[in-house]
Simulated assay, not measured.
Amino acid sequence: MPIRHCIVHLIEKKPDGSPAVLHARDTELAESQAIENLLADLNESYNAKQGKAWGYFHDESGAFPFSGWLAQYLENAQDFTAFSRQAVEHLQKLMEESNLSTGGHVLFAHYQQGMTEYLAIALLHHSEGVAVTDSLDVTPAKHLDLGQLHLAARINLSEWRNNKQSRQYISFIKGKNGKKVSDYFRDFIGCQEGVDAPGETRTLLKAFSDFVESEDLSEDETRAKTSALVDYASSQARLGEAITLEELSGLIDEDRPKAFYDHIRNKDYGLSPEIPPDKRTLNQFRRFTGRAEGLSISFEAHLLGSRIEYDEAQDTLIIRQLPTQLKDQLKRNKD
């Protein structure tokens, strides 16, 4: 993971309305194994976070100047240190306006993975711990607590520059509990949500369920294709990468690698060629299937306990809200 530029600034701020004090670094950090380890750990923690949103920049303006500064840096109009200083001063101002915000170390890292360039920005905090010294004394020690990562964003610089129509080149951690204390950080980046990751993932799983039904597959074939989808989508979620529909289609059916992709396009589910996976939605998805003596039953696991009830003692399933197509057939048969 080549790191092109990296710098850390410090903003001291308590969530009590007190002024935010900036301690800005004058030069970027030199390459080191410690920096590489930090960025690797940061990416691992960030990728594991649930509740991320995907979006794109607001138009550059006085309220949202960050994208303009970033463009100047990428066009070599200013260096990385000057860009990060402008950005962190803007963050300091927004942090002062947000009484609930807390300061911390602000990391800016421009790095590359494969052919793709990224900019990661994160507000880092410390935890108190203990360490054993060379003389075998026990002493208090601070360490960066990446498990408590609440304010961070990652910008796919390559996609931003090369795909002007994209609405998902920025990902950021969403806050919780109503009006979010993290709103100021999203505004600092100048980002607006462009893709509903849980909704897109649910639509993908619905398209897959429809595809499996239309193919009239055996139980083993259905299970294998479901595993292929969930394994691939979960892997992409761990890596912080999008699901590529064409790649997924090839994994689901190696003999007919375009079959699932064509199904999605022909049925017009409205999915983009690449969609961000939502881990929570994926974790809920598993199919129960069974077939015997002219009876075929298949449903998603999350429906059990809501629309579908299983009575083990009576060996029965109770199904509510039957599909419209099935109800129509039953009505016609009754007539």
Rank of each mutant, 00 (worst) to 15 (best):
L39E: 06
C6M: 12
V21H: 13
S18Q: 08
L29P: 10
P15W: 02
A20M: 03
H9W: 05
G17R: 03
H9Q: 07
K14C: 09
K14N: 15
P15Q: 03
E36T: 06
T27S: 15
D41H: 01
A20C: 03
S32N: 02
N37S: 08
R25F: 11
D41L: 00
A24P: 14
D16K: 09
R25T: 14
S18T: 11
E36Q: 02
L10T: 09
S32V: 04
P19D: 06
H9I: 02
I11Y: 04
H23D: 15
K14M: 15
K14G: 12
I35V: 15
D26T: 13
N37P: 00
D16Q: 12
A30K: 13
L38I: 06
A34Y: 10
L29V: 08
I11N: 06
L38S: 02
S32P: 10
V8E: 14
T27H: 15
Q33G: 08
L29W: 03
L22N: 06
A40E: 05
L42G: 05
L38V: 02
S18E: 09
L42W: 00
R25P: 11
D26M: 14
K14E: 15
G17C: 08
I35D: 08
N43G: 08
H9N: 00
L29E: 13
P19V: 04
I11Q: 07
Q33F: 05
I11M: 03
N37R: 01
I35M: 12
K13D: 12
A20F: 03
P19L: 04
N37I: 01
D16S: 10
N37W: 04
D41P: 02
V8R: 02
A34S: 13
N43W: 01
L10Y: 09
D26Q: 15
A40L: 06
T27N: 15
L39K: 07
N37V: 04
P15E: 03
E28V: 09
I35S: 10
L38K: 01
T27R: 14
L39N: 01
H9V: 00
